[in-house]
Structure formats: structure tokens, C-alpha cells
Simulated assay, not measured.
Amino acid sequence: MRYPIVIEPGSETTAFGVVFPDLPGCFSAGDTLDEAIKNASEAAALWIEDALDQGVAVPPPSSFDAVRGNPEWKGWIFALADVDPMLFDTSAERVNITLPRRVLVRLDRRAKEEGETRSGFIARMAMSA
């Protein structure tokens, strides 16, 4: 999946600034154009993960032509930032983990106290970290 980005040109003394028209408040920068585009992909992944964790809908990417045609971005550079579509995958997957028995007993006790299954408790703990 690729999101269009607009990049404010940098110079010898300023970084290239990156804005995502589709992801409000998501921005990045880089000392070079290549670095700015790479950093943009990382910023988008963090923005999307945070939005999903908070139950906020993630807007789909706009068409590249629509963004490029917006007069607000006149004089800026246009590119696409890659976003791993697995960020949106909410399908359950069975995993096999190995834990010391004493840890498993403690984990099950905590899950029961919270009124959750073992899997649900582990998932919630991982998401809150």
C-alpha cells in the first residue's frame, strides 16, 4: 500500500519536510530526499498503528494525481510512501510459545482476575506496552 506524500524541499541548512495529506498530523523529515521518503514510511506505520490502537479509522490513500493537483502544494516535491498492508490485518493466528510453568500459572491467574482469556490478556498486555 502506498500513501502520497508531499515534501518541502530542503537545503544545505534545512531538512526535507514531509506531510501526509491523508493522515492528519502525520509528518516526517530527512536530511536528504531519500532519507525523507524512508522516514515517511516509518512515520506512517507509527501513525496507523496508533490510530488502530485507539479505534480511529484510517483513511485510505488519495490518488497521487489528486494530491499532485492540489494548489496548496505548489512548489513541493511529490512521492509515495510504502506502508505494509499487514498493519491492517486483524485476523487471528495461532502461535506456539514456550514459557516456564510458573510463569504460565501466574499468567493464567492474572487473566482470570481480569476476566479475560489467556490469549486476550497477552494481546492486551502487548498492546499496552
Rank of each mutant, 00 (worst) to 15 (best):
P59R: 04
I7W: 09
G10N: 09
R106L: 08
F16G: 07
N96K: 05
S91F: 06
D108V: 13
L52C: 05
P4V: 01
K74F: 01
F16K: 02
W73D: 05
V6N: 07
W76F: 12
P71V: 01
K112G: 03
F27A: 15
P85C: 02
W73Y: 14
V19I: 13
G17W: 04
V56F: 11
E8R: 14
I5Y: 03
R106T: 11
A36L: 07
R101A: 12
C26E: 14
E93L: 06
L104C: 02
S41F: 10
D89N: 11
R110N: 15
E49S: 05
G55W: 00
D65G: 06
P21D: 12
Y3L: 10
V18M: 08
T98M: 10
D50F: 04
I48T: 09
D65I: 04
R124F: 04
A43H: 04
E35S: 09
S62W: 04
I122K: 00
L52N: 02
N96Y: 08
M86I: 13
M86E: 13
V67K: 05
D89H: 01
K112Y: 01
P24C: 13
I7Q: 06
A43W: 06
M127K: 10
A51T: 13
S41A: 11
V6A: 07
E72L: 12
P9N: 08
D53C: 06
A29L: 02
T117E: 02
R2V: 05
I97N: 06
G55E: 13
G30A: 09
V95L: 05
A111K: 04
N70P: 11
A15K: 08
A36T: 07
D89K: 13
L46E: 14
F27E: 11
A40E: 12
T90D: 11
E113D: 15
I122A: 00
P24I: 11
P9F: 04
D89Q: 03
W47T: 11
R106Y: 05
D65H: 01
